[in-house]
């Protein structure tokens, strides 16, 4: 049952992410990309948030769990699309931030 909850959370986050026009994968080379995509980090965040909610005792082993999983997926996709880059803005390197500070008056 818990595995179905994880699957619902991840799939709903990915589907809503695609609807919100997040790219499926970051651009190549992926290991250097800061792009927020459906697979990374949206699916990973959905997995982690579901584990947190599960261990905090909010899952009740009833059909309500499926709705909770759906809500986690929806909120995760919205978080990835609209909030992640505000809380944790991309930083390509320390040098670039130093340069921008020097350039500003």
């Amino acid at each position: 049952m818990i595995y179905i909850v994880y699957i619902i959370a991840i799939v709903s986050a990915m589907v809503l992410g695609l609807i919100l026009k997040l790219p499926l994968l970051p651009e190549q080379p992926i290991r250097k990309s800061w792009t927020t995509s459906v697979v990374f980090p949206t699916a990973v965040l959905a997995l982690g948030f579901t584990a947190m909610v599960s261990k905090l005792g909010y899952l009740t082993s009833t059909n309500m769990d499926y709705l909770i999983a759906l809500a986690i997926g929806v909120l995760t996709a919205i978080f990835s699309k609209y909030m992640l880059e505000r809380f944790l803005p991309p930083q390509n390197s320390e040098e670039s931030s130093d340069e921008s500070q020097e350039a500003s008056p």
Partner: peptide
């Protein structure tokens, strides 16, 4: 601390946030 596999999933998300704070995209850690 909190069980297999939930503890690992929670760790992955915390490592991701830690990565982003440390100017790292976060692929290796997660």
């Amino acid at each position: 601390a909190i069980g297999i596999p939930e503890g690992g999933f929670v760790a992955a998300i915390l490592v991701f946030f830690g990565n982003r704070i440390c100017a790292d995209p976060g692929y290796a850690g997660t």
